[in-house]
Design a protein around this nucleic acid. Structure first.
Lengths: 232, 232
DNA sequence: CACTGTTGTTAGAGGTTCTAACAGAAGTTA
DNA sequence: TAACTTCTGTTAGAACCTCTAACAACAGTG
């Protein structure tokens, strides 16, 4: 029998350290996460925490992995909750869940999508967790014809990527749509959580929803305002 | 006569410090920028540099301002060089310039669009420099009808923002197009420079160009693949 | 009871930002 | 030229940081 008691204590200690680290992250960003300060707040000396994390980077990597898992669960929950609804409504549900997750904890969103840690390379399990969010999005997109979607090179890359992730049956057109949906939503969210809209006095939620609708409508409203090349 | 000689020496010293800071930024990110290390590399002791920068944050703020100016100049150059061409071609030119600037110095792009420095609030002159890039984009978009573009609230905010920046004559439809163009391009670039496409094996340049074309075509190709709501 | 592994401690090396007090050089003015 | 002011550099030091090493105390096991 492996000492389950020690194991549990160890998990609790790590969890509390990460909880405090998230508070520091919210307050002063990644640079504000200090192993020493966490230890002090837990009532132990600095080096004690090095029994639980190989180093500061190890702690940060765990925070990143936790965040990816958390985001994936939020996306999957929204997708599951919208089961049976129309594809547009499910895309809206995904979009709302994605944005809510981001704006309620912008520091965690930035941990995933902001400036990467120097030298960071996502380990395989983290890549897998990150893919789950994309997979949730793929689940609510309609499966359309298998015609070529974009440049053949891009199509090939998309198919290869999906195949390596166990989604080999998704046609490239849908993969491309998912990818573009993701980059568009992220484009708004990224600028929002990094405060770029602040000085402009623009409500990013409206812009975000406009982008969601544009994806759903296939940008048909573009004929009215977004289209750059006129009829003449 | 104000001491022009000292002034020049002072500017040169600051410029060299910032040059080294950019090298550190490229190598180890913002966290790798050290006033002490810069001073050592310049052959002086650490505190000497505090005669030139109030503190580390002051140095970082200057790097940010420089980057915004540099980006604006790149965008303006592309727009100027494409004078006389069609609007779609000018949008392409802007898009290419924007992307080239970003991918040739990803650390600087991340300095502007990545995780913001904790507590950072852009001073007015920096906001102005940031706006110049957006202004360049506005310059290559076709001026279309003044019909309502998005939700009236958003339209109002866009008009108010443009008005405060001396672009009161740009109709909201064009402002909205510019804003959406910017978020879409940034969406791809952001994920590219933060390395998110790496594990996917996807070439972001192709995705980026697809987004540029989608803006130009008013997403008419959406009927083929991107549209989510089918005809039936 | 003895042994092993885990968890905590203190000490310390080497790094950081930044302030204070001081020395000397450069520029200005009488 | 001499005196004065300003600027630029120095060293010393406080207060933080990460992380390693050596040691003590504890928990669990044969």
């Amino acid at each position: 029998m492996v000492n389950v008691r020690r194991e549990r204590y160890r998990e609790d200690t790590k969890a509390e350290a990460k909880r405090i680290a998230l508070e520091q992250l919210a307050e002063l960003g990644v640079a504000g996460i200090s192993v020493n300060a966490i230890a002090k707040r837990m009532g132990v000396t600095g080096p004690a925490l090095y029994r639980y994390f190989k180093g500061r980077d190890d702690l940060l990597n765990e925070l990143i992995r936790d965040a990816w898992r958390d985001l994936a669960e939020a996306a999957e929950a929204a997708v599951a909750a919208s089961a049976g609804e129309s594809s547009p409504d499910r895309v809206r549900a995904f979009g709302e869940a994605f944005r809510t997750w981001a704006v309620t904890q912008p520091h965690r969103y930035l941990l995933l999508f902001g400036t990467p840690l120097p030298g960071y390379h996502a380990p395989e399990d983290t890549v897998l967790l990150a893919h789950r969010t994309m997979s949730a999005l793929l689940g609510v997109l309609p499966r359309e014809g298998g015609a070529a979607a974009g440049p053949s090179t891009l199509d090939d890359q998309l198919v290869a990527w999906a195949g390596s992730r166990g989604e080999g049956d998704v046609p490239p057109a849908v993969l491309l749509t998912a990818m573009r949906a993701f980059t568009r939503l992220h484009g708004v969210l990224s600028l929002e959580v990094s405060g770029q809209f602040g000085p402009m006095g623009i409500d990013p939620a409206l812009l975000y929803r406009a982008e969601v609708e544009s994806l759903i409508l296939g940008d048909s409203e573009a004929r009215g305002s977004t289209r750059l090349s006129g009829p003449g």
